[in-house]
Each structure stands twice: as C-alpha cells, then as structure tokens.
Design a protein around this nucleic acid. Sequence first.
DNA 1: TTCCAGGTGGCAT
DNA 2: ATGCCACATGGA
Length: 297
Amino acid sequence: MELKSEARIKVSTFDLVQIFDCGQCFRWEKETDGSYTGIAYKKVVNMRVETDENEDMKTLCIENTTPEDVKNVWTRYLDLSRDYEAIKGELKQKDEILSVAISYGEGIRILQQEPWETVISFIISQNNNIPRIKKCIANLCEAYGEFAGNYRGKSYYAMPGPEIMAKLTEADLAPIKLGYRAKYLIETAKSVLNDNGETLINSCNSSSEAAYEYLLSLCGIGPKVAHCILLFSMGKMESFPIDVWVKRVMNQLYNIPEKDAAAMKSYAQEAFGQYGGIAQQYLFYYIRKLEEEKGKS
DNA sequence: TTCCAGGTGGCAT
DNA sequence: ATGCCACATGGA
C-alpha cells in the first residue's frame, strides 16, 4: 500500500463550489474550512483550491491521494485536460444570453464520473430534489456499498455494484427511502448484468447514439436521465439534458414555450453544437442562482 | 394542506 | 407517435 500524500496541481477554470454544487454529482460535502471531501472510483479525497499571486492560475490541492491516482483517476474525473477557457470563449461569442450565464459559473467543469454510479444516481434523481437525492445515495452506499476509507472521522462507502443490487429486494431497499424508484434500480442492475456490464462500460467508447439507445433500454431511464449519464460520465459533451430548470431558463431567456422540449433541443444543437452539455450546465447553474437570490429577498 | 423536486412507465387514444 | 397520470418521500 502506497503512502498517501497531498498532490498540488495548477488549474484554471476551476471552482470547487461550482463544480460540486451544479447538480452533476451528489457525493461531495463541504467541510467547515471550505474544502470538499468526497468519494469517486472508491477513493476518498479532500480538495481545496489555493489562489496564487498571479491571478489567473490557481492550485488545486488534493489530500489523501497518490501521484498514480492523480494521473489515472483525478485528472480524468475533473476533466483537467480540456481547455474550458477556449470553450467558454467560443460559447460567449456565439450567444449573448449564454454569455451572461457563463459569467455566473466561470469555474464549472464537467466531471467524468463512474457510469454505473451515474446511472443509479440519476435514476434516483427523477421527480426528486437534490438534497434528498444526496440522502438516498448516501443511504444506499452506507447500507450496501464497500467501505472505502475514513477521512476526518467520517466513513465513506462506494456505490454498490450491479451484482450486489441485482440480488436486493424492494424490502431490502425500503429503509433507503427510494420510493417507487427502488424497483427501477433492481431491474436496471439485472439488465446491466445480462452481459456482465460490458455494454455499459463500453458505452464510453461507443457513439453517443448507440450509448443513448442502450441507456433508454434500462428501466427508469428516459431521455433526460440518459442525457445526464452521457454528459456526466461518458464525456459526450454535446448531450443536452432538459429538466424542469432548463425548461424554465430556456423559456425565460430564449422565449421558447415551457413544454416545447423539442424546440429547446434543436435550439441547443444549432446554437451550442458539440458543447451543448457544457452550455446546459452554465444555464442550469445560472437559473438556480437567480432563484436562490430571489428566495432570499 | 398543497405544491414541488435534475421524469419515467404504463396505458389510452 | 402523442397525451395523461400515478408514483414514494420529505421539505417549503
């Protein structure tokens, strides 16, 4: 077992609050010192950002990790190889409305999470709110997931795999409080195991269309959840998930009728192209920030 | 109390 | 193909 230490990485376009609080992931918690502790790929780490003298670069500090994990896990998880400055510049030029939204979430990055965990997380997310989604996922992992480590006195557990979930009954899941979604998880776990999880794993390298069709075949996954999985775990950056918030923001800013998801989808394709999913995150974050500010006043 | 949440499955047209 | 509606749970 290699000794864990702290890794320091120069980053730009990077804000932990925005990355972990923009609805794409549910497993990171803010510590009292402002850092975030969470788990991904069965590894528990703590992250904080130090601002340098030189304004435009920052240092990401990852505690409780190894150089190997930085290289093999965190660089990809945090999408550090992608040039978000260039993408933001391009999107701002294309669309003035989006330009404003981007200014609210300059530090957002799209994570590349584990496909299975993302499948489960977003099945749970349907017709549900973010605090409760987090609770459900934490309950599920604590009850049936593998112990992954301790940090600052707290225990962390991985998402149980399909081989574990396929054997559970709805009664087993009752204490998790998933509601009617419990049976969807069990059904989906069984389906994924039909080919030993290979189609799901290979979906990262498949075309977006093929991956989308496969995801739709799973119980509890419709168009919106499928697009979230494509975007947040498979690097399909053009995927444009349309949920209640995006409907709201597309209606308010672009005057597209609230219920016309087809028009929103085609607008995104035209205006945002291959970065539709990134644009969607800026819009999602923006409308939620506006609502939050409205609620306070 | 009623409404709502990162929607989908099932059923009727 | 499209339009309803039920669905568990908990916070506002």
